[in-house]
Amino acid sequence: MSINPELAGRVYPAADPYMVGREKIREFAAAVKATHPAHFELEAAAALGHTDLLAPPTFAIIVAQRADAQLIADPASGIDFSRVVHADQRFTHHRPIIAGDELLAELHVDTVRAMGGGAMITTRSEITTTAGEKVATTVSSLLVRGEDQ
């Protein structure tokens, strides 16, 4: 099955909110080998002016990839997850993510470009709090390899 070119411009509304937990921040920070104490200790986060544990700079990928999963799972997209390669990634933080945030991600399919037998799909997640505050914008390019690639 090939990639549906009409995906471009599609918007997937936010699914259930993602609750940022302290232990998840600690777990994710340890997994990327982060050592800064603001990810682990409340006092260290407070010393930098944060009201709770501070998430590492790429933490938003958890929320962004959940949003991307909606697109990949959409039967209309024609994307085979086992053929997806992450080509590039960008995070723009409007403010840091801290424990206790309840986040929503609205997924935008910005571009779909045919490449060989596959396609390059660029998605953008607009991440906000449930109160509507802008938190981060993430942009991912996913290369979906064709059958012969």
Binding site: H36, L48, A87, D88, Q89, R90, F91, P96
Partner: peptide, 12 residues
């Protein structure tokens, strides 16, 4: 301050 990283991008 990890919170000072306001933008981060790469190509794999």
């Amino acid at each position: 301050n990890p919170g000072a990283v306001i933008d981060y991008q790469t190509r794999f």
